[in-house]
């Protein structure tokens, strides 16, 4: 399936979903964060989707839009197609339901996003920092992150 067929099939299966094509990424669709878990279950189990291979989840920080955008990347080995799913969260206290119960591989990937962007994944079995050590303050990959040892290069 290509992206347009995905959007059509997903919106048909879940009438409240209202998935849209993403403008920046030709592989990505955009959904509301509340619908993400249900969509992921459908994507893994639907015979026409079969997105069984979880590649990664990562985030983009956009302070001017006051958004943290999560990006999930999935691939289907049996059908040979890929899909990315994007969903926007507010920068203050971003929260979303985990998908580590759907793909085990999301467990560490979500921990990384929690560690570096400060996104809380509810119902995650083991939400701890993974790259930085416990007790680290702040979320390093956010654009407004500062640290006393971080020196900005002169332009």
């Amino acid at each position: 399936m290509n992206r347009d067929e995905f959007i059509k099939a997903a919106n048909q299966a879940m009438p409240d979903l209202h998935a849209k094509a993403d403008t920046a990424n030709p592989d990505a669709i955009v959904v509301n964060s509340a619908d993400l878990h249900g969509l992921c279950l459908w994507m893994r189990d639907d015979p026409a989707a079969q997105l069984t291979y979880f590649e990664f989840v990562t985030a983009q920080d956009w302070p001017d839009r006051d958004e943290i955008v999560l990006v999930y990347s999935l691939y289907s080995h049996p059908l040979g197609h890929r899909l990315m799913v994007k969903t926007a969260l507010p920068r203050r206290d971003p929260q979303i339901e985990t998908v580590s119960d759907i793909w085990e591989g999301a467990n560490w990937s979500e921990r990384e996003v929690y560690d570096l962007f400060g996104v809380t994944f509810s119902r995650h079995p083991d939400l701890r920092r993974i790259m930085m050590f416990d007790g680290w303050e702040g979320y390093p990959l956010r654009k407004d992150y500062t640290h006393p040892n971080l020196i900005h290069r002169p332009e």
Binding site: A24, N25, D27, E55, F56, T58, V71, S73, M84
Partner: peptide
């Protein structure tokens, strides 16, 4: 814009987003 490219590295599926 944004893109995701993956290649077969020595250890497997290495991607750059």
């Amino acid at each position: 814009g944004e893109t995701y490219v993956r290649i077969e590295s020595s250890r497997g599926d290495l991607g750059c987003y």
